[in-house]
């Protein structure tokens, strides 16, 4: 599948934004985070900023961005519509909580604010899940319709969001050692899921063949003699994108280095340093993690094969 930059930015940056928003609101609801007003302001600005950036990026993928609001209508059947509805619903309790936390100086761990926090966390998780399901529900792309796709989206969103939460905590001198540890574990888990996914798709040769697609298996093996057109069409531009295995391997290592190795080393080092030194290391940790996820998302598209390519001479998909 063609890796479109707008969609790559959309999935990775909103994932981190909802991860940060959900974690911050849930931890505040349980009284683990301090109800510091400025900290709340920074947290909401950063998470809403990331979410808005991602959602705006996604509209660049549309032929008619001005009609994007219409995507709210078909939540009964469409995961894309559900994603749109949930992403907007999340703004309800989170904006209300932000008002209480920042303007009224309320304690986010006290009722009713904690309920808004928990609702925000639940809706954030559901939004990330529905983003993943847009892809994981597509039968014609077997590498997307894979049981590890949704967990990888969720865990990477939480881990990258957690790293940004860590940045904020260091910045306000409120660092919680256990939190840095938990984020490190989540990051490790997320990339383990991703490694398992890569391992699995490398070993599965693809369930479908040209014989399947054309239904001509009864005649024996099927080879393309002549394509319907000599130049590309939309289908080949969009679904015919293929990445060389060698390049994929290199990019996977790059994603692991940026997304996992770098952030873990920096997060651990940050935990050993005094406040500003820790802050100085936590920023590149969170930034690198996002870069790693961007590469991972690029691969998620580039390595996926659509069954329509079978009509055009692909052997398996």
């Amino acid at each position: 599948m063609h890796p479109a930059l707008s969609v790559i930015i959309f999935t990775s940056v909103t994932g981190a934004g909802y991860g940060l928003l959900g974690l911050m609101c849930a931890l505040a609801a349980f009284g683990i985070l301090p109800g510091n007003r400025l900290f709340g302001l920074a947290g909401f600005v950063l998470s809403f900023g990331a979410i808005a950036t991602g959602l705006i990026a996604s509209t660049f993928h549309l032929g008619h961005p001005g009609r994007a609001w219409r995507a709210l209508s078909q939540w009964r059947s469409s995961w894309l519509s559900r994603e749109a509805v949930l992403s907007i619903l999340t703004f309800g309790p989170s904006l209300w909580l932000a008002k209480g936390w920042i303007l009224d100086g309320a304690d986010p761990a006290a009722a009713p604010w904690r309920w808004y926090g928990l609702a925000t966390a639940a809706l954030s998780l559901l939004t990330v899940i529905s983003t993943a399901m847009i892809y994981a529900s597509l039968k014609p792309v077997p590498r997307w319709r894979h049981p590890l796709v949704m967990p990888a989206y969720l865990l990477l969103g939480l881990a990258t969001g957690g790293l940004w939460l860590n940045v904020l905590l260091h910045g306000f001198g409120l660092a919680i050692d256990d939190l840095a540890g938990a984020v490190t574990v989540a990051l490790l888990l997320a990339w383990l899921v991703k490694i398992a996914y890569w391992y699995s798709i490398d070993r599965a040769p693809g369930r479908y063949t040209a014989e399947h697609a054309t239904g001509l298996w009864s005649q024996g093996s099927v080879r393309q003699l002549e394509a319907p057109h000599v130049q590309d069409n939309y289908l080949l531009r969009e679904m015919g994108y293929q990445i060389a295995r060698r390049h994929a391997g290199r990019l996977r290592r790059l994603a692991l280095l940026a997304g996992l190795g770098g952030p873990i080393v920096l997060t651990i080092a940050a935990a050993l340093l005094p406040r500003w030194g820790a802050f100085a290391l936590s920023v590149p940790a969170a930034g690198l993690a996002i870069a790693g996820v961007l590469v991972e998302r690029w691969l998620f598209f580039a390595e996926a094969k659509h069954v329509v390519t079978l009509f055009y001479g692909a052997e398996r998909a």
Partner: peptide, 16 residues
Amino acid sequence: DLCIGCKLCSWACPYG
């Protein structure tokens, strides 16, 4: 008049 050009339908169709 309603289509936003998200292209998801073309991804969902196995028949191109």
